[in-house]
Structures are given as C-alpha cells and as structure tokens.
Write a protein that binds this DNA or RNA. Sequence first.
DNA 1: AACGTGACACAGC
DNA 2: AGCTGTGCCACGT
Length: 110
Amino acid sequence: MPADSTNFFEKIFDVVKQVPYGRVTSYGAIASFLGAARSARMVGWAMNGCPGDLPAHRVVNRVGLLSGKHHFEGTNLMQQLLENEGIEVDDNKIVDFKKYFWDPAKELDF
DNA sequence: AACGTGACACAGC
DNA sequence: AGCTGTGCCACGT
C-alpha cells in the first residue's frame, strides 16, 4: 500500500487524537515523528484542514506557546481547554511545557 | 511559473 | 525562551 499525501495528514490527526489527557505535543515532534523533521509548517498547515474532532489545543509550538489560539473560537478557548485538563497556562503559554510535553516518538510506538 | 503567506524550527545575537 | 534571520513544505492568487 503506497503512502498517499493523505496518509501524512491522517497520521497527524491520529497522533494528536492519541495525545493523552493533560498532555501536549509540539508540531516539530509530530513532524519529526512522521519524517518531516524540518517541515513543522506542514503540520500546522494540516491543522488548518483538521476534521474538527481533533484536540488541536493540545498541539503547540516548541516553546509551549499557543500559536494557534487565534484559529480557535473567541480568544481564550484554547487556553481554557488546556487549563481544564489541568495544564497551567500563562499568557497563551504553557507553564513547565517540558513537564506536560508528550513525545509521540517516545511515548507512542509505531 | 513566480510570489506571498502560514497553527514552525533552528542557528545566531 | 527573548529577538532576528533563514530554511522548510504546501497552498492560493
């Protein structure tokens, strides 16, 4: 079965959906995990076409900054969702990001 | 086909 | 994790 472009997107969605409650991951981690180490932008772009059932609020940039909050409804929804999961967020930024960071390449085993 | 844009990352200051 | 510049891939115009 050859790999379609769609497969890349599906993988991204699949990984994000598998992110455990109270955890977050980064675009770069996903990109690297999928073999597109330097193409984190593609991951972010993929989110642009996210199906909607995707917990995109658990996906942030490498410093834990809610770079995509602007794409959510309102202005604080993304932060509220994360805080609701027990993640400390301060000014659109995750506190102790490293502590909440969930690496698919380590935690997940493909 | 070229240029600009984007939910990023890394190297350099 | 603070700012700037460059590289990356895909898409819209």
